[in-house]
Amino acid sequence: MLVTRSRTSRVVIQVVVTLLALPFLVPLVAMVQGSLGGRGLGNYVKVWETGVLPTYLLNSVLISVFAILIVYACTMLAAFGFSKLRIAGKEVWFWALLLALTMPEAVLLTPLFVTASAFDMYNQLVAVILPVAALQIPFTVLLARNFYDGIPTEIMEAARVDGANIWQVFWQVVLPLTRPIAAAIVVLTLISAWNAYLLPMLMLNDPGRQVLTLLPSYFVSQYTNDQTGVLAAAVIAAVPMLVAYLALQKYFERGLAAGALK
Protein backbone atom coordinates (compact mmCIF):
# COMPACT_ATOMS: atom_id res chain seq x y z
CA MET A 1 0.00 0.00 0.00
CA LEU A 2 2.69 2.41 0.97
CA VAL A 3 5.40 3.14 -1.51
CA THR A 4 8.82 3.32 0.04
CA ARG A 5 11.37 4.91 -2.22
CA SER A 6 14.14 5.53 0.26
CA ARG A 7 15.88 3.33 2.77
CA THR A 8 14.88 5.78 5.52
CA SER A 9 11.17 5.43 4.84
CA ARG A 10 11.52 1.66 4.86
CA VAL A 11 13.17 1.84 8.26
CA VAL A 12 10.45 4.18 9.49
CA ILE A 13 7.75 1.71 8.47
CA GLN A 14 9.58 -1.14 10.14
CA VAL A 15 9.88 0.85 13.35
CA VAL A 16 6.21 1.86 13.31
CA VAL A 17 5.07 -1.73 12.74
CA THR A 18 7.26 -2.92 15.57
CA LEU A 19 5.97 -0.25 17.93
CA LEU A 20 2.39 -1.18 17.05
CA ALA A 21 2.96 -4.90 17.41
CA LEU A 22 4.94 -4.95 20.65
CA PRO A 23 2.02 -4.11 22.96
CA PHE A 24 0.25 -7.24 21.70
CA LEU A 25 3.14 -9.30 22.99
CA VAL A 26 3.17 -7.70 26.45
CA PRO A 27 0.41 -9.80 28.07
CA LEU A 28 1.95 -13.02 26.76
CA VAL A 29 5.39 -12.06 28.04
CA ALA A 30 3.91 -10.95 31.36
CA MET A 31 2.09 -14.26 31.62
CA VAL A 32 5.15 -16.42 31.09
CA GLN A 33 7.38 -14.20 33.19
CA GLY A 34 4.85 -14.08 36.04
CA SER A 35 4.35 -17.83 35.95
CA LEU A 36 8.06 -18.30 36.60
CA GLY A 37 8.17 -15.92 39.54
CA GLY A 38 8.87 -17.16 43.08
CA ARG A 39 9.38 -20.91 42.83
CA GLY A 40 10.12 -20.80 39.09
CA LEU A 41 9.08 -24.02 37.42
CA GLY A 42 7.84 -25.14 40.82
CA ASN A 43 4.65 -23.18 40.03
CA TYR A 44 3.94 -25.56 37.20
CA VAL A 45 4.62 -28.53 39.46
CA LYS A 46 2.12 -27.10 41.92
CA VAL A 47 -0.54 -26.79 39.22
CA TRP A 48 0.20 -30.35 38.15
CA GLU A 49 -0.10 -31.54 41.74
CA THR A 50 -3.70 -30.35 42.00
CA GLY A 51 -4.30 -33.53 40.01
CA VAL A 52 -7.13 -32.06 37.95
CA LEU A 53 -5.09 -31.20 34.88
CA PRO A 54 -5.51 -34.47 32.93
CA THR A 55 -9.27 -34.47 33.60
CA TYR A 56 -9.67 -30.84 32.56
CA LEU A 57 -7.65 -31.37 29.43
CA LEU A 58 -9.60 -34.49 28.53
CA ASN A 59 -12.93 -32.73 29.14
CA SER A 60 -11.91 -29.79 26.95
CA VAL A 61 -10.92 -32.21 24.22
CA LEU A 62 -14.15 -34.19 24.53
CA ILE A 63 -16.33 -31.09 24.47
CA SER A 64 -14.51 -29.72 21.43
CA VAL A 65 -14.55 -33.00 19.52
CA PHE A 66 -18.22 -33.69 20.09
CA ALA A 67 -19.25 -30.10 19.45
CA ILE A 68 -17.30 -30.18 16.18
CA LEU A 69 -18.87 -33.50 15.15
CA ILE A 70 -22.41 -32.32 15.89
CA VAL A 71 -21.91 -28.94 14.22
CA TYR A 72 -20.20 -30.46 11.20
CA ALA A 73 -22.84 -33.15 10.63
CA CYS A 74 -25.83 -30.85 11.17
CA THR A 75 -24.31 -28.07 9.08
CA MET A 76 -23.26 -30.13 6.10
CA LEU A 77 -26.63 -31.88 5.85
CA ALA A 78 -28.71 -28.76 6.43
CA ALA A 79 -26.73 -26.55 4.08
CA PHE A 80 -27.03 -29.16 1.34
CA GLY A 81 -30.77 -29.35 1.88
CA PHE A 82 -31.15 -25.57 1.86
CA SER A 83 -28.98 -25.09 -1.18
CA LYS A 84 -29.84 -28.00 -3.46
CA LEU A 85 -33.07 -29.70 -2.43
CA ARG A 86 -36.78 -29.00 -2.41
CA ILE A 87 -38.20 -28.03 0.97
CA ALA A 88 -41.66 -26.71 1.65
CA GLY A 89 -41.37 -23.31 3.29
CA LYS A 90 -37.60 -23.36 2.84
CA GLU A 91 -36.99 -19.71 3.55
CA VAL A 92 -39.13 -19.83 6.68
CA TRP A 93 -36.92 -22.58 8.09
CA PHE A 94 -33.82 -20.71 7.03
CA TRP A 95 -34.96 -17.54 8.72
CA ALA A 96 -35.80 -19.54 11.84
CA LEU A 97 -32.15 -20.57 11.97
CA LEU A 98 -30.85 -17.12 11.13
CA LEU A 99 -32.84 -15.49 13.91
CA ALA A 100 -30.84 -17.56 16.36
CA LEU A 101 -27.64 -16.13 14.92
CA THR A 102 -27.32 -13.19 17.27
CA MET A 103 -28.34 -15.13 20.36
CA PRO A 104 -26.26 -14.03 23.36
CA GLU A 105 -25.17 -16.87 25.63
CA ALA A 106 -26.51 -15.04 28.65
CA VAL A 107 -30.09 -15.48 27.42
CA LEU A 108 -29.61 -19.24 27.71
CA LEU A 109 -28.55 -19.03 31.34
CA THR A 110 -31.91 -19.25 33.11
CA PRO A 111 -33.44 -22.01 30.95
CA LEU A 112 -30.30 -24.12 30.89
CA PHE A 113 -29.81 -23.79 34.61
CA VAL A 114 -33.37 -24.82 35.36
CA THR A 115 -33.50 -27.58 32.73
CA ALA A 116 -30.22 -28.99 33.96
CA SER A 117 -31.50 -29.19 37.53
CA ALA A 118 -34.82 -30.68 36.41
CA PHE A 119 -33.15 -33.45 34.39
CA ASP A 120 -30.17 -33.81 36.68
CA MET A 121 -27.76 -32.92 33.91
CA TYR A 122 -25.26 -31.10 36.05
CA ASN A 123 -21.66 -32.04 35.54
CA GLN A 124 -22.48 -33.91 32.36
CA LEU A 125 -20.38 -32.77 29.42
CA VAL A 126 -23.41 -32.99 27.18
CA ALA A 127 -24.91 -30.03 29.06
CA VAL A 128 -22.08 -27.95 27.61
CA ILE A 129 -21.69 -29.66 24.25
CA LEU A 130 -25.27 -29.20 23.08
CA PRO A 131 -25.62 -25.47 23.86
CA VAL A 132 -22.20 -24.75 22.36
CA ALA A 133 -23.23 -26.61 19.20
CA ALA A 134 -26.67 -25.01 19.05
CA LEU A 135 -25.14 -21.52 19.27
CA GLN A 136 -22.72 -22.34 16.47
CA ILE A 137 -24.99 -24.07 13.97
CA PRO A 138 -26.98 -21.07 12.66
CA PHE A 139 -23.74 -19.38 11.78
CA THR A 140 -22.10 -22.34 10.10
CA VAL A 141 -25.24 -23.25 8.13
CA LEU A 142 -25.23 -19.74 6.73
CA LEU A 143 -21.55 -20.04 5.80
CA ALA A 144 -21.96 -23.47 4.25
CA ARG A 145 -25.13 -22.65 2.32
CA ASN A 146 -23.33 -19.85 0.54
CA PHE A 147 -20.55 -22.24 -0.29
CA TYR A 148 -22.91 -24.95 -1.60
CA ASP A 149 -24.66 -22.35 -3.74
CA GLY A 150 -21.37 -21.96 -5.56
CA ILE A 151 -21.16 -25.67 -6.43
CA PRO A 152 -22.64 -26.21 -9.90
CA THR A 153 -25.71 -28.41 -9.87
CA GLU A 154 -24.62 -30.01 -13.17
CA ILE A 155 -21.99 -32.03 -11.32
CA MET A 156 -24.73 -33.58 -9.22
CA GLU A 157 -26.98 -34.18 -12.19
CA ALA A 158 -24.26 -36.08 -13.99
CA ALA A 159 -23.95 -38.42 -11.02
CA ARG A 160 -27.72 -38.79 -10.88
CA VAL A 161 -27.83 -39.82 -14.51
CA ASP A 162 -25.23 -42.45 -13.69
CA GLY A 163 -27.69 -43.92 -11.24
CA ALA A 164 -26.46 -42.59 -7.91
CA ASN A 165 -29.09 -41.85 -5.29
CA ILE A 166 -29.22 -38.52 -3.53
CA TRP A 167 -27.21 -39.73 -0.55
CA GLN A 168 -24.47 -41.09 -2.81
CA VAL A 169 -24.40 -37.80 -4.69
CA PHE A 170 -23.95 -35.95 -1.42
CA TRP A 171 -21.40 -38.34 0.02
CA GLN A 172 -19.29 -39.06 -3.05
CA VAL A 173 -19.63 -35.98 -5.21
CA VAL A 174 -20.51 -32.95 -3.13
CA LEU A 175 -18.89 -33.56 0.25
CA PRO A 176 -15.33 -33.91 -1.14
CA LEU A 177 -15.74 -30.46 -2.71
CA THR A 178 -16.56 -28.81 0.60
CA ARG A 179 -13.15 -29.12 2.28
CA PRO A 180 -12.38 -25.39 2.40
CA ILE A 181 -15.62 -24.53 4.15
CA ALA A 182 -15.34 -27.61 6.37
CA ALA A 183 -11.99 -26.31 7.59
CA ALA A 184 -13.57 -22.97 8.49
CA ILE A 185 -16.41 -24.70 10.33
CA VAL A 186 -14.04 -26.89 12.33
CA VAL A 187 -11.83 -23.96 13.29
CA LEU A 188 -14.74 -21.71 14.32
CA THR A 189 -16.34 -24.45 16.40
CA LEU A 190 -13.03 -25.45 17.94
CA ILE A 191 -12.36 -21.89 19.08
CA SER A 192 -15.81 -21.38 20.56
CA ALA A 193 -15.91 -24.81 22.24
CA TRP A 194 -12.37 -24.77 23.56
CA ASN A 195 -12.56 -21.17 24.79
CA ALA A 196 -16.07 -21.44 26.25
CA TYR A 197 -16.15 -20.20 29.80
CA LEU A 198 -19.66 -19.18 30.82
CA LEU A 199 -21.43 -22.44 29.92
CA PRO A 200 -18.88 -24.77 31.56
CA MET A 201 -18.79 -22.53 34.63
CA LEU A 202 -22.57 -22.75 34.92
CA MET A 203 -23.06 -26.41 34.06
CA LEU A 204 -19.98 -28.11 35.48
CA ASN A 205 -19.81 -27.14 39.12
CA ASP A 206 -18.02 -30.21 40.42
CA PRO A 207 -14.35 -29.13 40.56
CA GLY A 208 -13.37 -32.62 39.45
CA ARG A 209 -15.34 -32.40 36.20
CA GLN A 210 -14.41 -29.05 34.71
CA VAL A 211 -12.50 -27.83 31.66
CA LEU A 212 -9.21 -26.12 30.93
CA THR A 213 -10.63 -22.58 30.81
CA LEU A 214 -11.72 -23.03 34.42
CA LEU A 215 -8.25 -24.08 35.55
CA PRO A 216 -7.07 -20.60 36.61
CA SER A 217 -10.19 -20.01 38.70
CA TYR A 218 -9.95 -23.50 40.19
CA PHE A 219 -6.42 -22.72 41.18
CA VAL A 220 -7.53 -19.44 42.79
CA SER A 221 -10.14 -21.28 44.82
CA GLN A 222 -7.51 -23.76 46.03
CA TYR A 223 -4.66 -21.36 46.79
CA THR A 224 -5.88 -17.85 47.36
CA ASN A 225 -3.43 -15.20 46.27
CA ASP A 226 -0.94 -17.54 44.71
CA GLN A 227 -0.62 -15.26 41.71
CA THR A 228 2.35 -17.05 40.19
CA GLY A 229 0.51 -20.38 40.33
CA VAL A 230 -2.54 -18.84 38.68
CA LEU A 231 -0.38 -17.56 35.86
CA ALA A 232 1.25 -20.97 35.47
CA ALA A 233 -2.26 -22.41 35.21
CA ALA A 234 -3.07 -19.77 32.58
CA VAL A 235 0.02 -20.68 30.55
CA ILE A 236 -0.93 -24.35 30.66
CA ALA A 237 -4.47 -23.52 29.57
CA ALA A 238 -3.22 -21.34 26.70
CA VAL A 239 -0.62 -23.71 25.28
CA PRO A 240 -2.88 -26.19 23.40
CA MET A 241 -4.67 -23.43 21.49
CA LEU A 242 -1.39 -21.66 20.80
CA VAL A 243 0.09 -24.83 19.34
CA ALA A 244 -3.04 -25.52 17.30
CA TYR A 245 -2.95 -22.00 15.88
CA LEU A 246 0.73 -22.08 15.00
CA ALA A 247 0.35 -25.45 13.31
CA LEU A 248 -2.77 -24.49 11.36
CA GLN A 249 -2.24 -20.74 10.98
CA LYS A 250 -3.73 -20.44 7.53
CA TYR A 251 -6.92 -22.29 8.45
CA PHE A 252 -7.43 -20.25 11.61
CA GLU A 253 -7.01 -16.96 9.79
CA ARG A 254 -9.20 -17.95 6.88
CA GLY A 255 -11.82 -19.56 9.09
CA LEU A 256 -12.15 -16.57 11.38
CA ALA A 257 -12.16 -14.17 8.46
CA ALA A 258 -14.87 -16.14 6.65
CA GLY A 259 -16.88 -16.28 9.85
CA ALA A 260 -16.61 -12.57 10.51
CA LEU A 261 -17.89 -11.42 7.15
CA LYS A 262 -21.16 -13.30 7.25
Partner: peptide, 10 residues
Amino acid sequence: VLAPATMAPV
Protein backbone atom coordinates in the same frame (compact mmCIF):
# COMPACT_ATOMS: atom_id res chain seq x y z
CA VAL B 1 -7.57 -17.54 19.46
CA LEU B 2 -6.76 -17.41 23.18
CA ALA B 3 -9.59 -17.71 25.67
CA PRO B 4 -10.38 -14.61 27.75
CA ALA B 5 -10.64 -17.03 30.66
CA THR B 6 -6.98 -17.91 30.35
CA MET B 7 -5.79 -14.36 29.72
CA ALA B 8 -7.88 -12.51 32.31
CA PRO B 9 -5.58 -13.44 35.21
CA VAL B 10 -2.74 -11.86 33.26
